[in-house]
Nucleic acid binder design. Structure first.
Lengths: 259, 259
DNA sequence: AAGTGGTCTAGACCACTGC
DNA sequence: CAGTGGTCTAGACCACTTA
């Protein structure tokens, strides 16, 4: 039994939210510090005179807010601030490419992290709508898709699907696992597609189950969704990349001149 | 009773996740279209031969993923794609400012939306660490803080705290509610701070309870956190803004020359 | 009034962790 | 083995929406 009005208080805050509120305040005020264990579900329940499920619901609220992290068999912990990989505004600068450093490697090494790239798949697929639009292809036309996963110090920090029109990629090193020293941008440049301008669009959402697994995401962590288009000197798009980045491990920086 | 191994299948997917998986597939495959109602919790439970709480847990998973939206007394619905306000790369261009159009108004009107700005507070506060760092002030030095809420067609789309050093703002129109035609950037320019370069950093996280309310956020919607710094022609920072944007209503676009 | 989601209870078994 | 979180059951009352 026991809705919020059983004691005559209409619209009173339900116990689960009250417990979550108390814990949230303790975390934000620093009474509970990052890494510290919360009382167990059973302790919280008996302390507040509720069923265990009610205390559990309170924990679920905090988990959805990204404030705590439940570990099976160990306990519930205040979340630790995580390492931040800042994707700098100049990651596509030619001087890095000329030095044989692909964008991701540039970023990771600048922060003292060990980069690793996993090639998950290299396929020919029908172009998704957004890709076809950016590359001015017919809807459903075949494109090369390279699916990569990027890790810094063996922690996954990005999933990236890169699309290149077959007219450009067919028969080139792009179809193979390791396209060239310097990454695919160096390879594309050798093919005559000199990067002159990029266009990036950023939003965020909660991860799908598949992304949660591939990025080892904890509950309550959203992902950044980055859509990137590369243009050559004639203003023609020759490559697009769709990236998914854990929001707790990534911030994107941009520096723009005005006027 | 009833763990996943009761039937001898060790590590089998628990019923709640199985049900969530089926519904997720139906949504992503388009069998359930945006706006459509899902079966009720009681229907799902009886159809799958589980308790109602188990079906309810499946719904909670989809809600945390931002795929569905539960409405008390009505049902659970596949979430509608929301209107997207793209914050264009040229929102700070001088020609808008010269025409008396502040950045937000420029954006909204370009998309046929009616912009409205609520000034929530104009105060002098100690500079937060990040603000002090960007403006090269002493930690805790007083700065002007203007707290705004932005609405498009009466839907909240941004919370923004703008900080200006008191040395610049004191005694000027910036201390008043409506600083000048063209917004605070026009006012700053009249004070001799000509915008030459901006620096923006983007990340995302789940909203705090206060932000959920101020932005009328639904469950499972993260916020974009945008940190913006304005530099004049001498490379001196004269203004920073900390924005919180609902991720389901905002995408940020950037266009950058390379090299 | 009927149907829906929101919350709670009291109890159970499971899987995982760590002493 | 004890303690923790993960999941489930079967039932209940509440608040909200719709007809």
């Amino acid at each position: 039994m026991g809705g919020p009005t059983r004691d005559g208080q209409a619209h009173a805050t339900p116990p689960s939210r009250r417990i979550a509120g108390e814990l949230r305040r303790a975390i934000l005020d620093g009474e509970l510090v990052p890494g510290q264990r919360l009382p167990s579900e059973r302790e919280l329940a008996s302390k507040h005179g509720t069923a265990r499920n009610t205390a559990r619901q309170a924990i679920a609220i905090l988990q959805a807010e990204g404030l705590v992290d439940a570990q099976h068999g160990r306990g519930v912990f205040v979340r630790q601030p995580r390492m931040f990989l800042r994707v700098a505004h100049d990651r596509y600068a030619r001087h890095h490419r000329d030095a044989g450093r692909p964008p991701f490697r540039t970023e990771a090494e600048a922060q003292g992290l060990v980069p690793r790239v996993e090639v998950r798949a290299i396929q020919q697929v029908p172009a998704p709508d957004w890709v076809a639009g950016q590359l001015t292809l017919g809807a459903g036309e075949l494109v090369l898709r390279r699916r990569n996963r990027y890790l810094a110090d063996e922690e996954p920090v990005e999933l990236a699907d890169t699309y290149v029109p077959l007219m450009i990629a067919d028969g080139t090193s792009l179809m193979h696992e390791v396209p060239a020293v310097g990454g695919i941008y160096a390879a594309l440049e050798q093919l005559g597609h000199r990067l002159a301008r990029i266009d990036e669009q950023v939003t965020a959402r909660m991860p799908l189950a598949e992304e949660t697994e591939a990025l080892a995401l904890m509950a309550g962590v959203p992902v950044l969704e980055l859509r990137h288009t590369s243009y050559d000197e004639r203003g023609i798009a020759f490559e697009v990349t769709h990236s998914i980045l854990p929001a707790d491990r990534n911030a994107l920086t941009f520096q723009l001149p005005v006027d």
